[in-house]
Simulated scan of single mutants.
Amino acid sequence: MSFSSLVGSSSPSSHPLVPYGWDVDWEAEFAPHAEQGLLPGRVVRVDRGQCDVVTPAGTVRADTEFVVPRDPMKVVCTGDWVAVDPEGSDPRYVRTLLPRRTAFVRSTSSKRSEGQILAANVDHAVVAVSLAVELDLGRVERFLALAWESGAQPVVVLTKADLVPDPVTLAHLVQDVETTAPGVPVLTVSALHGDGLDVLVALVGSGTSVLLGQSGAGKSTLANALAGEDVMDVQAARDVDGKGRHTTTTRNLLPLPSGGVLIDTPGLRGVGLYDAESGVGQVFSEIEDLAARCRFHDCAHETEPGCAVRSAVDSGELPVRRLESYRKLMRENQWIVAKTDARLRSELRKDWKRKGAEGKAAMEAKRGRWA
């Protein structure tokens, strides 16, 4: 069966992969591979060196052996667009990846400072946060930094809103998250009762969305509500801490009946930054704006004169928690980048030595006053 007969038309709008996000730009990217007789497809699931790929001929199982690079950032991932062997090939292989538009990446626990791609070609990063437990605003900021860095538009969804019956309390929680997430839509949803789902459905109704959050955040319940059927298993969260088991164990790509595509992910215990300086800057945009007004361009916002950031903290305009969170994420990101950047590593060592010397001098000065 030829490629053209599978497509049925030269128009991308009638392409069988349109429900999965196919468009004229992907058509152009794939053109050279079509000339080689390969089929386009989108990876819907990856599992131990093999992946499920939806193609114009249906979903096929393909081996990723031919695209196993030394760079872990180029491994096949859910959401990737690929070129696969045509029908009749045995075994069937993924031959190449099409260039990614966006990629959601976190750091691994590896000492080599490697990144792990959680989802590719994503338009919306939906961060699910459970209202069944106390809000961890620092974790929300961390998710948002990675989301902004990926190139996707973040969205925060406060799940299990039915567990907060007091509207005043709910409004305060939403306000706390909105302050934490400038420029990001914050929605409250009860998937159990369907409250707030219409707004979320409209938001993810075009493009590809990835669903992120900790175990117990209600991601699988939310995925089922958006899909209109039970496509994901759901388990109850523990009453003690609101945490759940890993209901979802692989990243799965699902076409939604209202349009758009959803990638559901396993619950994430650790969300390490990976070269996400610009993402951190967007999460803390108010601090970046204040820093531009500091007297010194390299102000550390500690004891320097003319520091606009410290002035905002002293006046109550900027919460101390926000500044501390900003510093923490920037330090973490610098540490990750420094593992692979010798120049930055050298600069950080000099900075640590300088601060150590300043601290030692301050202690000696205090001892002199006490003597």
Rank of each mutant, 00 (worst) to 15 (best):
S4G: 02
V7K: 00
G8P: 02
S9K: 02
S9A: 14
S11C: 10
S13G: 05
S14T: 13
V18E: 03
V24M: 05
E27L: 14
E35H: 09
Q36D: 11
P40T: 11
G41C: 08
V43K: 00
R48M: 06
C51W: 01
T55P: 04
T59I: 10
A62I: 05
V67G: 01
P72T: 15
K74V: 13
V75A: 15
V75F: 03
V75W: 01
C77E: 09
T78L: 05
V84N: 00
D85Q: 10
Y93C: 06
V94Q: 01
V94I: 15
L97C: 15
T102H: 07
R112P: 04
G115M: 10
V122E: 02
V122S: 02
H124L: 14
V129A: 04
L146N: 09
S150E: 02
Q153H: 12
V155H: 01
V156P: 00
T159L: 03
V164G: 03
P165T: 15
P167A: 14
L170E: 06
V174T: 07
A181W: 02
V189Q: 04
G194E: 04
L200Q: 12
V201A: 15
V210D: 02
L211R: 03
N224W: 00
A225H: 02
E229D: 04
M232E: 15
M232T: 08
V234W: 01
A237F: 04
R238T: 13
G242T: 15
K243C: 03
K243H: 08
H246P: 00
T249P: 00
R251Q: 07
R251D: 01
L256T: 05
P257Q: 13
P257C: 15
I263E: 07
R269C: 07
L273I: 12
V280R: 01
E286C: 09
E286R: 08
L290R: 06
H297K: 13
D298S: 10
D298R: 09
C299R: 03
C299T: 12
H301G: 14
G306F: 04
A308Y: 09
V313A: 09
G316C: 11
R322I: 15
E324A: 15
L329V: 14
W335I: 10
V337L: 13
K339E: 07
K339F: 06
K339H: 07
T340K: 14
R343N: 05
R345I: 01
R349E: 10
K350L: 13
K355M: 12
A365P: 01
A365T: 11
K366I: 14
A371D: 01
